[in-house]
Computed example of a mutant assay.
Amino acid sequence: MNETIVIFLGIRVTAWKLIGYTGVFLFTSRWFLQLWASKKAGRPMIPRLFWILSMAGSILCLLYFVFGKNDSVGILAYLFPCGVSGYNLYLDITHKKNEEKKNAPPSNQAHGK
């Protein structure tokens, strides 16, 4: 995975770097998504996809820094955001399920039959 795939503008690109570049792209794109969602709503918004992009980008960057570069600074930089994103995604999903249950119409089934 450390073999050179291509040299682009003097930068040696390997499979690990492609994984890292993809992670950085996903992690950064979440802010453009958040900006678009907030502009559309006319107030600050964080859509669920924000947390998904955060987790996916963090995981890919962690893979790059653990296996591709073996860099403890990069590992620490993406380890915490990955955990926070996972927790917030969990909260978002469970909150949505609880809201759906609360707003569901009562069941028409007779009790005890």
Rank of each mutant, 00 (worst) to 15 (best):
M1L: 14
I5Y: 01
I7N: 12
I7Q: 02
F8V: 12
G10Q: 06
I11F: 02
I11E: 04
R12E: 15
R12A: 10
R12F: 00
V13M: 10
V13E: 03
W16N: 03
K17Y: 08
K17E: 03
L18Y: 00
L18S: 05
Y21R: 01
Y21N: 01
V24P: 08
V24F: 12
L26E: 04
S29V: 12
W31I: 06
L33K: 10
L33T: 14
L35D: 01
W36A: 14
W36G: 00
A37M: 13
A37T: 15
K39E: 08
K40S: 01
K40A: 13
A41I: 01
R43A: 09
M45N: 02
M45V: 14
M45P: 00
M45A: 14
I46M: 12
R48N: 07
R48L: 11
L49C: 10
L49D: 09
L49N: 15
F50K: 12
F50W: 04
W51I: 05
I52G: 06
I52M: 10
L53Q: 09
G57P: 02
G57C: 11
S58C: 15
L60W: 10
L63Y: 04
L63K: 04
Y64E: 06
F65N: 14
G68R: 04
K69W: 11
N70Y: 00
D71V: 05
S72V: 11
V73P: 00
G74K: 04
I75H: 00
A77S: 07
Y78S: 00
F80P: 05
F80Y: 12
P81I: 02
P81M: 09
C82M: 12
V84Q: 11
S85A: 15
Y87S: 08
Y87I: 04
Y87H: 08
Y90F: 13
Y90P: 01
Y90E: 07
Y90S: 12
D92F: 10
I93V: 11
T94N: 12
T94W: 04
K96R: 04
K97Y: 06
E100S: 12
E100M: 08
E100H: 11
K101E: 15
N103C: 08
N103P: 09
P106I: 07
S107I: 10
N108L: 08
Q109L: 05
Q109R: 12
H111S: 00
G112V: 05
G112I: 05
K113H: 04
